[in-house]
Computed example of a mutant assay.
Amino acid sequence: MNTRELKFLVDVGVGKAIEDYLQSEGYDIKAVRNIDPCMKDEDIIRTAFWESRMVITMDKDFGELVYHSSMDHCGILLLRLENAVSYKKLKVVQFIMENYSDRLKNCFCVFQNDKFRIRKIAR
């Protein structure tokens, strides 16, 4: 996928290293910490949707918002990496982008226990 087609809104807690990596790879990224570090999850999804961005987060509440509240979105990448150091998170995102970037848009994606799942959400 052309890097111009995939844009991200990176949630607080994901880390600056991931923001820097994505930016260095040519992706259009915005960081929640630069907009409003206290932004509510619903507002993060809304902002990302309005700007055609995929949310990268470590907050599992986004699954509830997408599946049960049926919020419009352009994709969620949920990193279930509790207690992971910055280096580990970065390696996971690099792996995902190198192998799956062409399949992420408009999907709910979860990385957990060294497994990666991609689900297309019917709307």
Rank of each mutant, 00 (worst) to 15 (best):
F62I: 09
G63C: 11
K40L: 15
F49I: 08
R33P: 01
Y27E: 08
D61E: 08
Y67I: 08
A17N: 12
E25H: 10
I56Q: 14
F108P: 04
I18F: 14
L79W: 00
M58H: 13
I35F: 06
R4S: 01
E19F: 15
A17Q: 13
K40C: 12
N34C: 06
S101K: 13
Y87D: 08
S52W: 08
P37S: 14
L6E: 00
F8K: 04
D43M: 03
D61Y: 04
D72S: 09
E25V: 10
N113Y: 08
G13A: 02
L9R: 07
V32I: 12
L78P: 03
V55E: 15
Y100V: 03
L22G: 11
V12L: 04
V66L: 08
I35M: 07
I18M: 14
I96M: 12
Y87M: 09
R80I: 00
I76G: 07
C74R: 04
G63R: 01
S24T: 10
L79H: 00
I44G: 05
Q94I: 12
G26E: 11
K91N: 05
H68Y: 10
K60A: 10
V10K: 03
K7L: 01
Y27C: 13
R119Q: 04
V92T: 05
K115H: 04
V93H: 09
D41L: 13
F95K: 14
I18T: 14
K16E: 11
K89C: 10
D11F: 02
N113W: 10
V14W: 04
L79Q: 00
L9E: 06
S101A: 09
R123F: 02
V85D: 07
K40Q: 14
E82P: 01
R4F: 00
S52F: 12
C74G: 05
V14N: 06
V85R: 11
L22W: 13
D11L: 01
I56L: 15
G13H: 01
I121G: 01
R33E: 07
L90H: 03
I118H: 02
F116A: 03
E98W: 04
A31L: 15
K91I: 05
V110G: 06
F108I: 01
M54W: 14
D114M: 08
K60H: 09
G26M: 11
C38H: 15
S24W: 12
A84D: 02
F108A: 04
R80G: 01
Y21W: 13
E98G: 06
L79C: 01
D11V: 02
L78R: 05
R103A: 08
I121N: 00
L22K: 15
Y87Q: 11
R46G: 02
A84W: 01
G13V: 03
M39K: 13
M71P: 13
E19Y: 15
F111D: 03
I45K: 05
K115L: 10
L78S: 03
V55W: 14
G63A: 11
E51F: 07
I44Q: 05
I76M: 07
M71L: 08
F95V: 11
K16P: 07
K88I: 09
N99L: 05
I29H: 09
E19D: 15
D114S: 12
M97R: 09
S70F: 14
R33F: 03
D102W: 07
K60T: 09
M97F: 12
